[in-house]
Design a protein around this nucleic acid. Structure first.
Length: 474
RNA sequence: GCUCCCUUCGUCUAGUGGCCUAGGACACUGCCCUCUCAAGGCGGGAACACGAGUUCGAGUCUCGUAGGGAGCACCA
C-alpha cells in the first residue's frame, strides 16, 4: 500500500475591504486560524478588492489593524485580488478555449428585462442562455462578458463540515458571469481561481455563501482542480435576533477595543459562540488551538450577548498579570484624557479596580479619582457626604496616624482600625468619611487601597481640604 | 415567487435512542460575607416550536406543519 502523504491544511480569511473588520468576520478569521493552527497547517489572508467602487485603502488598513490587535497572524499574505487581474483573465479565456465558458454580449438592460420576465413567470431570475450555444467569437464590445457553461443535468452534492450534506440540482443554476465587461472577474470566479492557486484545502466562511458553493464546485471541476472541503458558519445576530447593524450595535472589532474589551476576551467569547467543549467556558490560546474543531461548530445562528462578553472580559481582567494589561490600560487612560504619569502606576490601579469593573474603559473612568485634580471636585456634594458628627474627629485622627505610618495598604489598614478602636466607632463610620475625603464620592475600592494609591502627600492634603469643608458645615 | 438552511432555559450551549424527574455558563433572583461599590460562597426560578410516525423506549431517528434566516447581480 502506498504511503499516504497528508496534505497540509491551508485555510484562508478573505474579507472584502468595504468597511471595518466586524465581529462576524472576526469569528470567521478566528475559526480559520484555529483550524490551521490545530492541524499544523497554514492560515492565509486575502483581500477581495475587485469591487473597486466600494473598496478603500482605509478599510484594508482597518482590517489589518484589527487582525493584529486580535493577534491572529497570517502565515501568508495579505494577497490582493486587484494584483491578480491578468491571472483571472487568463483562466477565463482558457475556459472559453476549452468550451467550458463562452462570450456573451447582452446589455445590462437586456439582462434586467430577462430577470423580470423570469420573475413574472414565477421562476428564479436567471440568464436564459442565449449565447450558450452560439459560439460567438471574441470581439470588441462594451457588453462583452464571459459566462460559465454550467452543467444542465444532475446535481451538485457536497458534505459541509458544519451544515452536513447539501445537494442542489444543476437545473437551479444558470450560466453565471465569471468575467465582467469592465475587465474584472466576478466574485464566484475569483475565489475559485484564488483558492486553487493558493492551495486552499478548507474553505471556512459565512453561510451566506452556501448557495454559491455549488456554482463554485462546478467551476473547480471545469478547471480540473481538486474541490476543497467547505465549512459554512452560521450568522451572528444581535440581542434581538436581528442582523447586526451598524446603526444599533457595535459591530466593528475596534469599537469593542474602544469600549474596553481585551482581545483575548473577545476571542474567548467568539470561540464559544457557536462552538463548545463540554461545559468549559474559558479557554487559553493553547486550549483553543488544541480543542477547537470546525466539525463541532453548531448549525444555527446565535445572538451576540454583550453581558456575557463583559463577564469573560472581567474574568481576564482579574486573572491576567496586571503588568501585561498595563499597556492597553494606559491606552484607555489617555483616551479618557488622563496622563498616566501624573498618578499611581497603572498596574496598581488595575489591581485596585479589576473586581469592580467589566471593561478597561470603565476602569479608566473610575481611575479618575487618582489622577484628576482635587480642584475639580463638587464641593457641595463632598460637604454633604461629610455631614456626620463624627467625621471631623475621624479625619483628624486618621491624618495624624497616616502622616507617620509605613505607606503600604496593610499598615494603612491598621491605621483605620486604630482610629475605629480609639473613637469607638464601627469600620463604616471611619471608612466612609475618609473615602469621601480621598475621592469626593461615596464609592471606591477598599479604603486602604484608595488611600494608598492617592499617595501620602496628596492624601494628607485631601484630608485637610475635607476637614475644611466639614467645618464649613457647622 | 423559487432554491437552500435553521429550531433545547431570556441568551450561549451540553446532549449523537435508555446515564434526562434535560446538565453547565451569562443574565435575573434569595441568603451569607462586608468600610461603600464590587468580587466571592451557598441556594432558586427558567427550555427540548408543534403534530404524526418508527421503537419496548425519542430532546436524540423519519415525515409533515409552523416560525425564522440566507441566496437568486457584470456585489462580495
Amino acid at each position: 500500500m502506498a504511503a499516504h502523504i497528508p496534505m497540509t491544511v491551508r485555510t484562508r480569511f478573505a474579507p472584502s475591504p468595504t468597511g471595518f473588520l466586524h465581529i462576524g468576520g472576526a469569528r470567521t478569521a478566528l475559526y480559520c486560524w484555529l483550524e490551521a493552527r490545530r492541524r499544523g497547517g497554514e492560515f492565509i489572508l486575502r483581500i477581495e478588492d475587485t469591487d473597486r467602487e466600494r473598496s478603500t485603502d482605509a478599510a484594508v488598513q482597518a482590517i489589518l489593524d484589527a487582525m493584529q490587535w486580535l493577534d491572529l497572524a497570517a502565515d501568508e499574505g495579505p494577497f490582493y485580488q486587484t494584483k491578480r487581474q491578468e491571472r483571472y483573465q487568463q483562466v477565463a479565456e482558457e475556459l472559453v478555449a476549452a468550451g467550458k465558458a463562452y462570450y456573451a454580449y447582452e446589455s445590462k438592460q437586456e439582462i434586467e428585462a430577462m430577470r423580470e420576465a423570469a420573475m413574472a413567470a414565477g421562476e428564479k431570475p436567471r440568464y436564459n442562455g442565449y449565447y450558450r450555444d452560439r459560439n460567438e467569437p471574441r470581439r470588441e464590445d462594451p457588453n462583452r462578458v464571459i459566462r460559465f457553461r454550467n452543467p444542465i443535468e444532475g446535481s451538485v452534492v457536497f458534505e459541509d463540515k458544519v451544515k452536513g450534506r447539501i445537494e442542489i440540482a444543476n437545473s437551479e443554476l444558470d450560466d453565471l458571469v465569471i468575467f465582467r465587461s469592465d475587465g474584472w472577474p466576478t466574485y464566484n470566479f475569483a475565489v475559485v481561481v484564488d483558492d486553487i492557486d493558493m492551495g486552499i484545502t478548507e474553505v471556512i466562511r459565512g453561510d451566506d455563501h452556501v448557495n454559491n458553493t455549488p456554482r463554485q464546485i462546478n467551476i473547480y471541476r471545469a478547471l480540473g482542480a481538486a474541490v476543497p472541503e467547505f465549512a459554512h458558519l452560521p450568522m451572528i445576530l444581535d440581542k434581538e435576533g436581528k442582523k447586526l447593524s451598524k446603526r444599533t450595535n457595535s459591530v466593528s472589532v475596534m469599537e469593542y477595543r474602544a469600549d474596553g474589551f481585551l482581545p483575548h476576551a473577545i476571542l474567548n467569547y467568539l470561540v464559544r459562540l457557536g462552538w463548545s467543549h463540554g461545559d468549559q467556558e474559558l479557554f487559553s490560546r493553547q486550549e483553543m488551538i488544541s480543542l477547537f474543531d470546525i466539525a463541532d461548530v453548531n448549525k444555527a445562528a446565535s445572538r451576540f450577548d454583550t453581558e456575557k462578553l463583559a463577564w469573560v472580559n472581567q474574568h481576564y481582567l482579574k486573572t491576567d498579570d496586571p503588568q501585561s494589561l498595563a499597556a492597553e490600560f494606559e491606552w484607555h487612560l489617555r483616551r479618557a484624557g488622563i496622563d498616566p504619569s501624573t498618578g499611581p502606576a497603572p498596574a496598581d490601579v488595575i489591581v485596585a479596580l479589576r473586581e469592580r469593573v467589566h471593561t478597561l474603559k470603565e476602569m479608566a473612568e473610575k481611575a479618575m479619582i487618582w489622577y484628576a485634580p482635587i480642584a475639580e471636585w463638587d464641593d457641595k456634594a463632598v460637604a454633604k457626604h461629610l455631614k456626620n458628627s463624627t467625621a471631623p474627629a475621624v479625619l483628624d485622627a486618621a491624618k495624624t496616624l497616616l502622616a507617620e505610618c509605613s505607606w503600604k495598604p496593610e499598615p494603612i489598614h491598621q491605621v483605620i482600625e486604630q482610629v475605629a478602636t480609639k473613637l469607638e466607632l464601627g469600620m463604616g463610620k471611619v471608612a466612609q468619611p475618609l473615602r469621601v475625603a480621598m475621592t469626593g464620592t461615596q464609592v471606591s475600592p477598599s479604603i486602604e487601597h484608595t488611600i494608598y494609591l492617592v499617595g501620602r502627600g496628596e492624601a494628607l492634603q485631601r484630608i485637610d481640604a475635607a476637614i475644611a469643608l466639614a467645618q464649613g458645615l457647622s
